[in-house]
Design a protein around this nucleic acid. Structure first.
Lengths: 345, 345
DNA sequence: TATTCATAAAAAAACGTTTTCGTTACGTAG
DNA sequence: CTACGTAACGAAAACGTTTTTTTATGAATA
């Protein structure tokens, strides 16, 4: 086991000082051509690479982005991560990913951990429990210490940071409008409780679409489920009840899982998709694409969202000290992917 | 924007030396009760937290695990990551995740980057291109520098490291055996080219199962596709051809995507699952669970795999210097999840 | 009274860099 | 011959810790 090569070792080996080695490797004109070449040759031969930790300490800059998300086993979040990762890599940044598991305490712990020198800034999607608690002291703390934060997808108000959002309302509007255009008139929605920002916004989009087509919103056709990332037995039962109670000709859901479970129930009841009931959902993942019938979806372009979030953060990290603080909200356009679960125009 | 509190600042504020502060905070008996309390109170009040980077440099230990995987938008890998993350957190380790994108150069780059001080060890699933190239110099290099490596799922031979594997062969055997037990006799397999370790092993398991039931292996019933993580149009076409050419009563696939595409084709051809054709696949993900019919799968327990890999790595990292090097391969048991795509016994 | 000892605190070294500021030797201008 | 500029390099400080070594002050001991 060979010890890692350091400037000090090179210096000793070549009988020069540490500073000479450092300067030679950074092509300083202070060092003579001859010495420079000798040192560089040696460093190359033994594959010297500067120690990142030492550099971080020296520069007070880690070139690392901390990403905190509620879940990793989740198609949308992984696409976002992919986008973040690519952009970070292009700008020579590292990415540390932590999972909050939708748990407030874990989110706080992770942030504190990463804030103690590990990262220069954060990209974050807020945990469900944090939204419920409305306790954002951990966010304000890191921001107060000068670390920029970019929130995405699950965001909260009243924090000094940038935001990158899907245009949830518009996406839902388009999705529902598509069903209306293809003749649906009694459209239900499977959504979440209002404290989940994306759920609330998608519900609003749903209502706006109906209204713009002159269809009156019927509260009974709105089912608000507890959880946006799962669809356990309790939710499945509620969905079944909801569908059998209301004679719908279209269903809009805020995620794939709700849609698939609705489809399963419809299938069991002998209803045909899309002949009897049309189905559109948010999130364009594996399920939508591969289901029979394949599902018409509102695609969220997670990768683009990740790229954008990373760009914004890196921009903040590399802006000159004196630049004015400004916070923006960026919207990522959704697009409607038409598949077999809706009738054609 | 408040600057982060350091030992130095505390020292200046309280008119003591830096070492006194450090010792006081670590409850050294060298410091008088009075001074200790004063310092601790101050540190507490202003929420002092030691700087991780400085600690890493001092201790030559980062308490960080580097994870390099081919893909993140991938159900199985995310479950593994979840396992790694949980275990790491329990042992006070951080996790840095890098994506190789199945690309050799990116894998090398990522490893070199992380090896320069950022991590203490690696958990890794080898990129497809690396397996093809059979160039493992980057692995040998970090190992040579004393960083332990644990490979999982997509592993290669001839490297001094631990391995955590699904018992792929046994999983495939069980899956195929289940079809045989329920009466299938002409079972095809959708797998990958042999250089993908998991594909090869699963194919072997398939063959063993057939043989143990006295069914002769027919090479024509084995379709080897290029890619294990996608099922593009070319593959879809091959699958369709394969199925229509052979009159199968059972299909085993090495992943969900192949299975679902097979199911789609069967559906189009009017074949019923499982009445006409049974279907079993590797990987228990969202698709299998939610497809209609839901799919019988060989579940890989990715989370357990991640936990195990992390445990092994952390163990290596914390073992005494003089302990002997030993490398083990750990197998994670699979389990068969029976659903609607196979007939009942 | 001189020596030892204990206590409490400070100083210094180390981790691996980069960078600023000296230092040395030498050649050249005044 | 002195002064000075310059080329080439080294020393030291700094980043924020921990830990080992020193120092200072009294008190106890011989």
């Amino acid at each position: 086991m060979r010890r890692k090569l350091t400037l000090k070792l090179i210096a000793k080996e070549l009988n020069v000082s540490i500073s000479t080695v450092s300067k030679a490797l950074r092509d300083s004109p202070e060092i003579s051509e001859e010495t420079r070449e000798k040192i560089k040759a040696f460093a190359n031969l033994y594959n010297y690479k500067p120690n990142n930790i030492a550099l971080s300490l020296k520069n007070r800059k880690t070139n690392t982005i901390g990403v905190i998300i509620p879940q990793i086993v989740h198609h949308f979040f992984t696409t976002v991560i992919r986008g973040i990762e690519m952009t970070a890599r292009e700008h020579n940044y590292n990415v540390i990913i932590c999972l909050s598991n939708n748990d407030f305490d874990k989110e706080v712990l992770n942030m504190e951990l990463l804030a103690n020198g590990s990262t220069d800034g954060f990209i974050l999607s807020v945990a469900k429990e944090t939204m419920l608690k409305e306790d954002y002291h951990h966010l304000n703390e890191v921001i107060d210490q000068g670390m920029p934060v970019v929130m995405f997808d699950r965001v909260v108000e009243g924090i000094s940071c940038d935001r990158v959002l899907i245009d949830d309302k518009e996406g839902a509007r388009n999705g529902v409008a598509h069903m209306l255009k293809t003749g649906c008139r009694k459209i239900g929605i499977l959504t979440t409780k209002d404290y989940v920002s994306v759920g609330r916004l998608r519900t609003e989009g749903y209502m706006e679409a109906l209204e713009s087509y002159g269809v009156k919103v019927d509260k009974k056709l709105i089912l608000k489920l507890d959880n946006i990332d799962e669809c356990g037995e309790a939710s499945q039962k509620k969905i079944a009840d909801f569908i059998s109670k209301n004679d719908l000709d279209g269903i809009f859901t805020v995620n794939e899982l709700f849609a698939v479970n609705a489809a399963k129930f419809l299938h069991r009841e002998g209803k045909r998709i899309p002949e009897d009931v049309s189905l559109v959902c948010f999130t364009d993942g594996l399920l939508s694409e591969n289901f029979i019938p394949s599902l018409t979806t509102v695609s969220q372009h997670g990768e683009e969202m990740g790229r954008k979030a990373a760009e914004i953060l890196i921009n903040k990290l590399e802006r000159p000290e004196d630049e004015e603080e400004e916070y923006h909200t960026t919207y990522i356009e959704t697009s409607l992917v038409q598949r077999e679960s809706t009738r054609s125009l």
